[in-house]
């Protein structure tokens, strides 16, 4: 079995791959933003024991954690097109669907990994030493102020190791975008495979690219963690 990578020299294929890498990174970044918003909001509601909201948050977390992100994606994709929300494009005047495949992928990534992030951040909050919290309370911080200025900053730092693997999982999951025809890196790969029939070589290259993106993400998170380190809390 010989591997032939000569197709990589074709500028068209290079363009597809590079554009795909860009889309994948954008998807993952937007997904991460949504993940953090959902994770922090959900963990705050559970941690502060907000009445009447705890049960809905728990149900939300369990629903999205225990079902496949792929089915969530298909469901969102079909339900939102069934409801049929559209926007009027100000430039052309045509009606474009509000929820494109891209939006649905970002939503499903944010919801699935966000539900996991809720649990991660919550256990980070629980790992904040009780003395620190009591100290803040005795200095006159209100319950909300304690949460905002003491518990959340320390809790987020405590949750960095599991959050790193959650971020890697988000990047890996973003590859399902191809199944709703978003032009991410897998999409470029399938196009190239259709034209060159070099299936194995293309897939091996994509595998390496994903490994590189995931490793890059881990490195960036490590840098950020080191920059925001508080000595004495977490590693």
């Amino acid at each position: 079995m010989t591997l032939d990578f000569s197709w990589l020299l074709d500028p068209l294929y290079q363009k597809w791959l590079l554009r795909g890498i860009g889309t994948t990174m954008l998807l993952s970044l937007l997904g991460m933003v949504l993940m953090f918003v959902i994770g922090i909001a959900g963990a705050a509601l559970l941690h502060l024991k907000v009445r009447f909201l705890q049960s809905p948050v728990t149900i939300f977390v369990e629903l999205f954690r225990n079902t496949p992100p792929l089915v969530q994606l298909f469901f969102l994709y079909f339900m939102l097109s069934e409801i049929g929300l559209t926007l009027t494009d100000p430039v052309t005047g045509g009606r474009i669907p509000l929820f494109t495949g891209f939006t649905c992928v970002v939503l499903s990534l944010g919801l699935y990994n966000g539900a996991i992030a809720v649990e991660i951040i919550r256990s980070g909050l629980l790992a904040v030493p009780a003395q620190t919290v009591e100290g803040a309370r005795s200095l006159g911080y209100s319950r909300l102020q304690t949460f905002r200025y003491v518990e959340l900053p320390i809790g987020l730092r405590m949750s960095i190791p599991p959050m790193t693997s959650n971020i890697v999982s988000l990047i890996k999951t973003s590859s399902q975008a191809v199944l709703v025809a978003v032009a991410d890196i897998m999409y470029g790969a399938t196009q190239i495979m259709l034209e060159t029939f070099r299936n194995l070589e293309v897939m091996l290259l994509i595998w390496v690219i994903y490994l590189a993106i995931a490793s890059l993400a881990v490195l960036v998170v490590r840098r950020i963690a080191a920059a925001f380190r508080i000595p004495g809390y977490g590693s």
Partner: peptide, 18 residues
């Protein structure tokens, strides 16, 4: 590390052809 960081979808596709 390689296996843990690779997307499942890509591994599945690769197995199809490998």
């Amino acid at each position: 590390n390689v296996l843990r960081n690779s997307p499942w979808l890509v591994v599945l596709y690769a197995m199809l052809y490998l």
